[in-house]
Nucleic acid binder design. Structure first.
Lengths: 183, 183
DNA sequence: TATAACATGTAACTAGTTACATGATTGG
DNA sequence: CCAATCATGTAACTAGTTACATGTTATA
């Protein structure tokens, strides 16, 4: 599926594997991420499949930049993927919940410490959504008003992130409270 | 990580790969799942690593049941895993958000249809949490009061699921509303 | 009559992670 | 002087999915 994330970004403009990593880290990171090495190898396969083409851009004292451009075939693959309905729920793997599920014989204090640590992490994350992510989207939408339908969607995913973190923190607070009282 | 899910269940009683699949599907499915084939191959590796041992149980007209029992080494591996803090946030891959992120050029109606379909799926899921999951936990906790610390944790993960689905539905409703009005 | 439940697994594949290798430039 | 940024990639690995293979018994 990473290929569709990459195609999505290449629809805006040609980019290198390195650029794509930066872009993903700044934008889709909270619902789609990839390591640099996976991006490089996926781009290679995508070129073999005719979804993108690469052109080397020579540089001094650096490896050439390898700039990937989406092809017509890539564009239509992307559009048909976007049209396809998502008919199943995703049940992503959540390490913390797995650990908690089997923590019946762990001391109260250790569990509370574990959950408080998570609470801090989620608090940091919600702040990022409210500041950095929000600022970035506002900046693009005021600089490029023609992208308003795109930024609308970016904002929708940002709102999801914010709601998710809020929900997670509320659940942690509730659970920590219950453990302290009842466990 | 699947190994720890399997070890967790084997702490209660010896089980076959087939049993473990049934158990996971009924309990941890919303935060940890695996295919039957992955469970079989993971158990094999776990036996090679000394975390479990298997004993064949002959049956008539059926393949032998291969019953796995957790070893002392498996028990201590599980306990030390449970003690380890989770220090990073997980950012699981979410296909729907990825698709939505790149849906700026898709017709309004197609997006709304996509999101309404999701809404139905999440509504079904929240109902499962409120009925089946809840009933199962209540049943175990009244039949086996000695497992009350375990069922407390199961219930905590169930509440997470319920809150997650509630949040997801609220976000979908908000987003559908905004698309209908502003997009 | 067919399909679900029981019960095992292998093989081939895709996806993703970790570690390694190279090497210049810029900023603290 | 050290770390970060720029820029590419390969190799070995772990994790997970899909498809195949086998065969009985109970239920609808």
């Amino acid at each position: 599926m990473l290929r569709f994330a990459l195609l999505g970004f290449l629809q805006y403009e040609p980019k290198t594997g390195y650029d794509l990593k930066q872009t993903m880290d700044k934008s889709t990171n909270h619902f789609w991420h990839a390591k640099q090495s996976q991006i490089y190898s996926t781009l290679k396969k995508m070129e073999a499949d005719g979804l993108v083409v690469s052109h080397p851009e020579p540089q001094e004292n650096r490896p050439d930049r390898k700039v990937y451009t989406i092809t017509d075939s890539g564009k239509s693959a992307m559009q048909s993927w976007l049209q396809q309905p998502v008919t199943k729920l995703e049940t992503p793997k959540q390490l913390l919940l797995l650990k908690l599920f089997f923590s019946g014989n762990i001391q109260k204090e250790a569990i509370v410490t574990q959950l408080r640590l998570q609470r801090n992490l989620h608090e940091q994350q919600i702040n990022l959504y409210k500041t950095e992510s929000s600022d970035f989207i506002n900046q693009v939408s005021s600089s490029f008003p023609e992208l308003n339908r795109d930024t609308f969607m970016w904002e929708a995913t940002r709102r999801f992130g914010e709601r998710f973190e809020r929900m997670y923190m509320d659940w942690l607070d509730e659970t920590i409270g219950m453990i302290e009282k009842e466990f």
